[in-house]
Design a protein around this nucleic acid. Structure first.
Lengths: 211, 211
DNA sequence: AATTGTGAACCTCTTCACAGCT
DNA sequence: AGCTGTGAAGAGGTTCACAATT
């Protein structure tokens, strides 16, 4: 089975978003060239990325938007819903409970946890904040597959361990720390400080990065 | 002037965070090997990354933590403060106004804008929400260098154009759209949906990604 | 004429391995 | 002996260029 690079996976998400947009605009077909322009990559890159999974276009004509969109959704597992547990209902956690980009793509925050007794029992955008004490049990009962970690650094690793104990297979980690998981669990990190620091680097060393 | 890759810049941020942590724990020196383990990379990678900017270690002894930390801060422009304008005080914008990882690293949200008349004038964590109508002028008057865009997709490009008109040189974009800027302005995208979609891909095709 | 799919060339990033310093 | 700094080798990702198809 061929390995797919992170870059290709990221680009696939972006192509998918472009296809949704073009479809909403009423277009029927799209060429690799247009898809490329919309995402600041080369047309060859688009075709290479897609060719990892099959031949979806028609020579001379381009790609059927509805068809390609459906294919990418299938490839990426976006043609279904995913049950998500949110851990830590602070500023970021609260923003995520109501984040359209998650909901619209089938990521359903079905349970949320916090350790603060003052928050437990409250309802935020339709989700009840539960007591962290029963995390493993609740995650298992609700058949949660993905855990989102938006707790402080100090409790991130232990929350991750408990999510894994509850049977979660994927973790989206917002805590700025390198968490450890068993080999069969996937982690993606979302550290917003890293991107603004990259901006700081670019502004400080404009000659060292390509504009 | 040698080009520095995005990957190296990202890793530098992560090394920096490790160094802060180790320093707080009271350590004096650190080897490339330990720094590597803490960040899931090889020791050679750490040394190569650092060697882009100079020779900071001592053979046989490793790196002095305080010294390396200071050097990375200087290289990345983290030894100063940056004035930041926040555009769009929705769920994400509100979370960012109070995001420790920004503040602690010197990114000061000095001005915030929203187009909703109901929000204008309100104060969130010490920041007054201003009328978007005067964005260019306010950004210029306050000498803002970085703009954070957390407005809906439909108004993202026009807000970016106005930030640029106000003299901003770097943009952190949370809108899931590929914004266009003049060649001398830097953009970094922070699309949280992309990472959870990458998780969806990994869970759907475990054989195609390395655990 | 337009556009895909793809092997080959190219380029960039990562790892190796070892000389050199403490 | 321990560990860095780095040229060279290796791996992996991107672009080229063209045959194949509509």
């Amino acid at each position: 089975m061929p390995r797919i690079s992170d870059s290709t996976i990221h680009r696939l998400s972006r192509y998918y978003r472009t296809l949704k947009y073009m479809h909403d605009k009423g277009s029927q077909t799209i060429s690799s060239n247009i898809l490329a322009q919309q995402n600041d990559v080369t047309a060859a890159q688009v075709r290479k990325d897609l060719s990892c999974f099959g031949a979806f276009g028609r020579r001379g004509l381009g790609y059927d938007i509805v068809d390609l969109k459906r294919n990418i959704a299938r490839i990426m597992g976006l043609d279904r819903t995913w049950k998500v547990a949110l851990c830590g209902v602070g500023n970021i956690g609260r923003a995520l409970i109501d984040y359209d980009q998650f909901r619209v793509q089938g990521f359903q925050i079905t349970v949320a946890f916090d350790s603060d007794p003052g928050k437990i029992g409250k309802v935020i955008h339709g989700v009840v904040i539960r007591n962290e004490a029963n995390l493993e049990r609740d995650v298992r009962d609700e058949k949660v597959e993905i855990g989102v970690v938006s707790v402080p650094v100090s409790s991130a690793q232990s929350i991750v361990d408990r999510l894994v104990a509850g049977g979660v297979r994927g973790i989206l980690n917002f805590a700025p720390i390198n968490i450890k998981v068993p080999k069969n669990v996937f982690v993606r990190n979302e550290n917003m400080a890293i991107e603004i620091e990259a901006l700081s680097f670019a502004l400080t060393n404009p000659k060292m990065v390509q504009y």
